[in-house]
């Protein structure tokens, strides 16, 4: 079996892992830390590497775990979350859209819009601006496609809690995209 030499890891896998982390966490300094931690964890776990996959695949698996941990921690940071009241508080219109917060008409008539890079950038920025708890929940469930029960376990929340957070995240993303793109 070939000898594995961690001395070359930074040169051989650094860029790849860094890109992998960067598109998933969005912040260069965080991505760098995660890659660094991945290398350190890899060296410590070297004995358990079974040569069933390439070293890079194995390192990516470690990095994935680090990314989940990052979002798990992020979700526990206490912060003031302002929940926009979009629905009427009382009377006939209780729990129905308040006119000024109701969805405006979007021009969605072309599929080209889905390929628009500017729109993707705005959407990505909107996701990053979600409150930590909602962002963690949304990113792990929707972007990283972890299963619902896994997300609940990682974030220590109940399924109904998860549904509410995903929903709040979508309400806010919709508002954000409307302000940032459709209502320019």
């Amino acid at each position: 079996m070939p000898e594995i030499n961690p001395d070359n890891w930074v040169e051989d896998h650094g860029d790849y892992l860094y890109n992998y982390a960067l598109v998933r966490v969005g912040r260069p300094e965080v991505a760098e830390d995660l890659v660094q931690e991945t290398f350190l964890a890899g060296i410590k776990a070297l004995a358990s590497f079974e040569h069933k996959s390439s070293v890079q695949t194995w390192l990516v698996a470690i990095l994935k775990r680090k990314i989940i941990d990052y979002y798990r921690k992020k979700s526990t940071v206490r912060e003031e979350v302002h929940v926009e009241e979009r629905f009427g508080p009382y009377g006939n219109m209780q729990d129905h859209w308040v006119e000024k917060h109701a969805p405006a008409q979007w021009q969605l008539n072309s599929d080209e819009l889905l390929e628009n890079d500017e729109l993707k950038k705005i959407l990505q920025a909107c996701i990053r601006h979600l409150p930590g708890k909602w962002a963690s929940c949304f990113i792990l469930r929707v972007m990283e496609e972890l299963k619902g029960d896994v997300v609940c376990k990682e974030l220590n929340i109940s399924p109904s809690n998860m549904w509410v957070m995903l929903h709040r995240a979508r309400l806010q993303l919709r508002d954000c995209l409307e302000k940032g793109w459709f209502n320019q």
Binding site: V23, W106, K120
Partner: peptide, 30 residues
């Protein structure tokens, strides 16, 4: 109805975004 249409659009847009992310190789170097 608008909300439904828009949320579905966002889901599709995120799907495209994910595909892009998966296909992305090394764009930024350390």
């Amino acid at each position: 109805r608008r909300f439904s249409e828009q949320v579905k659009f966002m889901t599709r847009a995120i799907g495209r975004m994910k595909k892009r992310i998966e296909q992305q190789g090394v764009e930024v170097k350390l």
